[in-house]
């Protein structure tokens, strides 16, 4: 017990110890911020991988570690699309995942925001044109926010997400 407390005291607070995002996030369409208004300061996210190389997943996971701690901004990862305000989709949409993606989108209650995370979700990246890839996410479901990068750094994801929830006058 004492060992645990000692370790925690010695470690201290690590939250926020990361380099600031160098890349300014892309401006978000006012219509999307309008749509995000009912969520106010919280955002329940369901992450859907439709064929990424899993680097984007790792960075999404990193958002939850004590350094980034996305929960402090009211960003939660939820276990079911039915609990979600926003879908974060990573990877080009593969032939085998196309139907699953559409299902998830249908099962997410309105209003919902779709975030394409990473270059592959936005334009298929290096997998563009392959027989097993049916196209970027927006070919199948409407996309509201794009976060480019291969993969985007957690700081960049955080910044884009906070941009989304910024209250406008």
């Amino acid at each position: 017990m004492f060992r645990i407390i000692k370790k925690s005291l010695k470690t201290g607070v690590v939250t926020g110890q990361y380099p600031e995002s160098e890349r300014p996030s892309e401006p978000i369409n006012p219509a999307v911020t309008e749509k995000a208004k009912p969520f106010r300061r919280s955002l329940a996210i369901r992450e859907v991988d439709t064929g990424s190389c899993n680097a984007c997943e790792m960075e999404m996971n990193a958002l939850l570690n004590p350094v980034y701690d996305a929960e402090r901004f009211g960003i939660h990862i939820v276990a079911s699309p039915r609990h979600a305000d926003a879908l974060v989709v990573t990877g080009p949409v593969t032939v085998n995942m196309e139907r699953a993606l559409k299902d998830v989108h249908r099962q997410t209650p309105d209003p919902k925001i779709v975030i394409a995370l990473g270059d592959c979700a936005i334009n298929c990246g290096i997998f563009k044109g392959s027989y097993a890839v049916t196209g970027p996410v927006e070919r199948h479901i409407p996309v509201d926010v794009r976060i480019p990068g291969c993969p985007p750094r957690p700081a960049e994801i955080l910044e884009a997400l906070s941009e989304l929830r910024k209250e406008r006058p």
């Binding site: 439709t50 990424s52 085998n96 990246g125 997998f127 890839v133 993969p151």
Partner: peptide, 27 residues
């Protein structure tokens, strides 16, 4: 479910440049 046709994509690339694709087989 995530089959992206990686091995076929390799066949469209020159030997020297395909490192980029190899990096993205499993991130």
């Amino acid at each position: 479910w995530k089959h992206r046709g990686v091995e076929k994509l390799f066949e469209q690339l020159p030997l020297i440049d395909a490192v980029l694709l190899a990096e993205r087989v499993s991130g």
